[in-house]
C-alpha cells in the first residue's frame, strides 16, 4: 500500500536556507527553460512531456532496499538520457510541483530544496556522468543505456548529499550534520542500485524501439572524441 512521503517536508530545514535554495532553483529552472528551447522540436517535445508523466508514475513504486527502508526512482538520469539535461530539469520540476501542490508530498517551503537536489544536482551529475561513460564505452545503444544506469547509480547518493548540505546549513534538528550525511549516503547508496536498474531497463527499451528520439543517442554524433 502506497502511503509515503517521497520528498523533504516543511520544517526539516529553516526558512532562510529554504528561501535561498528556492531562489537558486528559480535561477536554474529559468536557465533550463532557455536551454530546452534550443533542443526541443516537434519530434522530441512529446517524449519530454511523457518522460515527466512516466517519472511521476514510477516514483509511486517504492521498492524495499533494507529492513524497514524503501527507495523510489528519482528519474534524473533517465530523463537526462532520454531528453537531455535542460528538458530533464523541467520534467523533474513539473513532477515535484504536482506532487507538492496536488498531493501534499514534499513541503511547500521545501519545494526549492527538493527541486535543487533532484532537478538540478541529480540531473547535472547525470549529464556529466553520461558523457564520461559514453566516452569510455563502445558507441552502441546498449552503452547509452549502461551509461544512463551508471549515472543513475551515482546521482542518488550525490543528490542525497544535497540534503545533507542543506541540513548542515539550516537543519532544525539537534543531531549533528556529519551523522546525518553518513546515514544519508548509506541508505541512498542502496537506493542507487534500484535507480540504476530501472533506468537501464527503461532507457534500453526506449532506445531499442525509438533511438531516433533519444537525446543520449542522437547527441553522441556531435561529441568528438
Amino acid at each position: 500500500m502506497f502511503t509515503p512521503k517521497l520528498h523533504i517536508p516543511d520544517g526539516f530545514i529553516n526558512l532562510p536556507i529554504s528561501a535561498l535554495f528556492g531562489l537558486l532553483s528559480i535561477a536554474f529552472v529559468a536557465l533550463a527553460l532557455k536551454g530546452a528551447a534550443k533542443t526541443l522540436d516537434d519530434r522530441t517535445t512529446p517524449l519530454a512531456g511523457l518522460t515527466a508523466v512516466f517519472i511521476f508514475a514510477a516514483q509511486m513504486i517504492n521498492f524495499p532496499v533494507a529492513a524497514g527502508t524503501s527507495g523510489h526512482l528519482v528519474g534524473a538520469a533517465l530523463a537526462t538520457a532520454l531528453v537531455g539535461p535542460y528538458s530533464a530539469t523541467l520534467a523533474l520540476t513539473v513532477v515535484l510541483g504536482v506532487q507538492a501542490l496536488l498531493f501534499a508530498d514534499g513541503g511547500l517551503t521545501a519545494l526549492g530544496l527538493n527541486v535543487f537536489n533532484l532537478s538540478v544536482i541529480a540531473v547535472w551529475v547525470s549529464h556529466f556522468a553520461i558523457i564520461f561513460f559514453k566516452r569510455v564505452l563502445p558507441k552502441t545503444k546498449t552503452s547509452v543505456a549502461f551509461a544512463a544506469g551508471a549515472a543513475a547509480f551515482l546521482s542518488v547518493p550525490i543528490a542525497a548529499t544535497g540534503f545533507s548540505i542543506q541540513y548542515a546549513l539550516g537543519g532544525t534538528g539537534t543531531i549533528d550534520a556529519a551523522t546525518v550525511a553518513t546515514a544519508m549516503l548509506g541508505t541512498h547508496f542502496l537506493i542507487g542500485i534500484g535507480e540504476a536498474l530501472i533506468t537501464f531497463l527503461t532507457v534500453s527499451s526506449v532506445i531499442g524501439t525509438r533511438s531516433d528520439l533519444v537525446f543520449g543517442w542522437q547527441e553522441k554524433l556531435e561529441i568528438k572524441s
Partner: peptide
C-alpha cells in the same frame, strides 16, 4: 508499493529529527 519509509524519512526517524517535520 512498499509502505516502509523512504531513505530520507528513515534517516530522519533513526537520527531523531523526524518530529521537526511540519504538515
Amino acid at each position: 508499493a512498499s509502505s516502509s519509509p523512504d531513505g530520507l524519512e528513515k534517516v530522519a526517524e533513526d537520527k531523531g529529527f523526524l518530529e521537526t517535520a511540519k504538515d
